[in-house]
């Protein structure tokens, strides 16, 4: 079947079949390799992207359901120049080490911040628990996200 969607603001039209995931489309077809994969079972969150502003694990999102959707990946979140406030906060707070979970983490965090989560450590941890990070121990990710919630609320 044919789907037409917007990916990072660009129109995309593709023939897809039922087993094809959004992750396949992004990485293998569109070359948007900023989105990572760690399990293909929805357990690590590394492939998180936004579909119609909501966070999804792209490894389990069927392309066939995306006709008319708007998809944002880490490439789309990144401004032409510089970094977004959330990305800059990850840099400033040392919230990325190996960086492999980082694109998915930032996409999930962007959705979390936009969902109106309070500047509360437990709520941030709860909201991002679908994104595994093996390097950082999470403190600095929480701090980065907290700082952005506070900035945007200020």
């Amino acid at each position: 079947m044919r789907i037409e969607l917007m990916v990072n603001g660009d129109p995309v039209s593709r023939l897809v079949e039922g087993s094809e995931s959004l992750l396949d489309l992004l990485r293998n077809d569109l070359g948007l390799v900023g989105t990572k994969w760690g399990c293909l079972t929805g357990d690590c969150g590394a492939c998180t992207v936004l579909v119609n502003s909501e966070p999804v694990v792209s490894c389990l999102k069927a392309c066939a359901q995306l006709d008319g959707s708007t998809v944002t990946t880490i490439e789309g979140l990144t401004p032409t120049h510089g970094l977004s406030d959330l990305q800059q906060a990850f840099v400033d707070h040392f919230a990325t080490q190996c960086g492999f979970c980082t694109p998915g983490m930032i996409m999930a965090a962007e959705a979390l911040v936009n969902s109106g989560v309070p500047a509360d450590e437990a709520a941030i941890r709860e909201g991002l628990s679908g994104n595994l990070c093996r390097c950082t121990g999470y403190n600095k990710i929480v701090d980065a996200v907290m700082s952005v919630i506070e900035q945007r609320n200020a």
């Binding site: 039922g18 079972t41 389990l60």
Partner: peptide, 26 residues
């Protein structure tokens, strides 16, 4: 039937199911 897909895509990927037609409920 294909609803959210979190089980259907996973089952297809792991070989637990092998449907030929999906009916998208979304």
């Amino acid at each position: 039937p294909l609803a959210g897909g979190t089980d259907v895509l996973l089952d297809m990927r792991t070989g637990r199911s092998d449907p030929t037609v999906l009916v998208d409920m979304s």
